[in-house]
Write a protein that binds this DNA or RNA. Structure first.
Length: 560
RNA sequence: UGGGGAAUCGUCUAACGGCAGGACUACGGAUUCUGAUUCCGUCAAUCAAGGUUCAAAUCCUUGUUCCCCAGCCA
């Protein structure tokens, strides 16, 4: 974009940080984005990325990318690469790339320290028993019979857990806090579990893995994070976050601040559910353009600038909210409008024969690549006797407000001539398959010497010169505004979320289209070449987003 | 009386005791060789009830509604 992006609007977290800077509590800001590599990043992560990296950028601080890889059962290498790619694509640079697994050794030492100080113990209850002992939301839990083992016993047991002497699940290390706490997280939370799973980074070095609550706060402290930003569901974990840091006595004690997750209407932002869509084949992959994943949106043609703008617009608060798709689409249109190359493409072709146009004549009309920005230049588009126009641009029984083609009506062909429809040709089913028109040779270039007004301008391609393409049109993935809240979200998938058109006709310049360039097919929307499904002789375009359509509204009103 | 949070136009979000503002949407209108863009305009909100105050979205009291927590997930 030509204009510099303004800094993000303020919010309560930025206010806190500004306050900490003003008061001298901090002289430099350090944040982090801590994804678990167990799936692809989605629009909700984009919110967190923009927040964490955006704050670091605007306050002249640093932001780390840290993989929260403490559960090898779920985590994979593939996801890490995808996440790195997505963060970079969004336009951010991390200060350091870290892994929670980098800290397994110091974490172990911290655990030993807690044991020595009588703040942690090895419990030998089964998972089921631990659950029973935990009590309920309203009833206090009761202490494990192993809670008062001696420090020596605990040390020995924990050591042997680490050395692989016990079966998975035989023992866990727990913090000794308060089994009667009204906060369930404080009822002696598990710190370590035995898990004989190969870790994608540490291999088989460890058979015990630290839990999130133990790992996260300490990782933050190790990295000298000043503000640890996370979502609302971790609010109840903050006392534990602080407890661990206080008991381990880390020199750095980051402040955890929670904000509301992003919810987008008519979609889901749950890695588990997105994963399910992929595994059950409801979508083609994580980067299916209908997915709210960063990779899906990228493939669809959404831009990083649009996503950043969207994240700025939605704000940061502690209130549960659900954003309308229109906000996202607005950000996408606003960005693309600036620089998308204007071209002509016909999605549903209707043949038009211009009977008074010379049979073998071909004229190259000059078309602007961006009417609002002449610097983007012009191109030549071939025009001939037989062309295709959009089927929707003809109506047999057209209302007065319909400014396009109908028998006896005149329209302007963009950058070419005025044509008037004189006859129509139908097939045996009564469907219109061809229009017979005349053109006015005096109107070349799109204006007439007599200055007569033509209300409608339509796009077209020369039949002989057109190139064929497939085009994917997308609609919302779900028909329910909040599919995630329903019993079975899969039941609410929109059967019409993907419409594939296979006989589209595009102007010849598109033969050289590349998947990095955003196009506006005039009057129909923004498109991008699909980088996966396209080949030299087989073009596949994805419609990123439609243009606003005033006629669609009028038409809808007429029909209702 | 388990604990922890949150309530402002249809949807988001500002205002931190002093004119309830902005964005998106919707609806009008102007311009237009894209029914696009651009421009102008209109509709539209403080969860409720009390209280304090010259003045309350903001402070106090009492309610109401919604969200989160009982993984050896994060």
């Amino acid at each position: 974009m030509s204009t510099e992006e303004a800094t993000a609007p303020s919010n309560f977290i930025r206010n806190i940080i500004q306050g900490d800077l003003d008061s001298g509590k901090h002289t430099a800001i350090q944040t982090r984005f801590p994804p678990e590599p167990n799936g692809y990043l989605h629009i909700g992560h984009a919110k967190s990325i923009c927040l964490n990296f955006g704050i670091a950028k605007d306050f002249d601080g640093l932001c780390n990318l840290r993989f929260d890889d403490t559960n090898p059962d779920k985590e994979e290498e593939e996801y890490m690469h995808a996440i790195e790619e997505d963060v970079k694509w969004l336009g951010f640079e991390w200060s350091e790339l870290k892994h929670a697994s980098d800290y397994f050794q110091p974490l172990y030492m911290f655990a030993v320290k807690l044991i020595v100080e009588g703040k942690a113990y090895v419990d030998s209850l089964s998972a089921d028993e631990i659950r029973e002992y935990r009590g309920t939301l309203k009833a206090p839990g009761k202490e494990s019979p192993h809670r008062n083992r001696s420090v020596e016993d605990n040390l020995g047991l924990f050591q042997r857990m680490k050395e692989g002497e016990f079966e998975d699940g035989a023992h866990v290390l727990r913090a000794k806090i308060d089994m009667a706490s009204p906060n369930m997280n404080m009822r002696d939370p598990t710190l370590y579990r035995i898990k004989r799973t190969h870790h994608h980074r540490t291999g088989d070095d460890w058979v015990i893995y630290p839990m999130y609550d133990f790992t996260h706060c300490l990782s933050d402290a190790i990295e000298s994070i000043t503000h640890s930003l996370c979502t609302l569901e971790f609010e109840d974990h903050r006392p534990l976050y602080d407890w661990v840091l206080d008991e381990v006595k880390t020199p750095c004690h980051p402040q955890q601040i929670e904000f509301a997750r992003l919810e987008l209407k008519y979609t889901i932002t749950s890695k588990r559910k997105l994963q399910q869509l992929v595994t059950e084949g409801h979508v083609n992959d994580w980067d299916d353009p209908r997915m709210p994943t960063i990779s899906g949106m990228r493939r669809r043609g959404y831009t990083a600038a649009a996503l950043r703008d969207f994240c700025d617009r939605i704000g940061i608060t502690k209130k549960d909210s659900s954003i309308e798709m229109a906000v996202l689409e607005n950000s996408v249109r606003e960005d693309l409008n600036e620089y998308a190359l204007r071209v002509m493409g016909v999605l549903n072709p209707l043949k038009v024969t211009i009977k008074n146009y010379p049979d073998d004549q071909v004229e190259n009309v000059e078309a602007q690549n961006h009417p609002q920005n002449p610097d983007m230049g012009t191109r030549k588009v071939p025009f001939s006797k037989t062309i295709y126009i959009e089927h929707d641009d003809f109506m047999e029984d057209a209302p007065k407000k319909f400014f396009r083609l109908s028998v006896g009506r005149e329209v302007r062909l963009r950058y070419a001539y005025y044509i008037t429809c004189t006859d129509i040709v139908k097939n045996s089913n009564g469907e219109v398959i061809e229009l017979i028109c005349t053109y006015d040779p005096e109107t070349k270039g799109g204006s007439s010497p007599d200055g007569r007004k033509v209300k409608g301008t339509i796009h077209w391609v020369s039949a002989e010169h057109a190139i064929d393409a497939k085009i994917n049109l997308y609609d919302r993935l779900f028909t329910h505004p909040n599919p995630g809240s329903t019993e079975n979200f899969v039941e609410h998938l929109n059967p019409e979320s993907l419409q594939q058109l296979s006989h589209c006709k595009l102007e010849p310049s598109l033969a050289n289209a590349n998947p990095e360039t955003h196009y506006q097919f005039e009057r129909t929307g923004y498109f991008i070449l699909d980088k996966k499904d396209s080949a030299k002789d087989k073009l596949v375009f994805n419609r990123t987003v439609t243009l606003r359509d005033a006629w669609a509204k009028i038409d809808k009103q007429n029909n209702s």
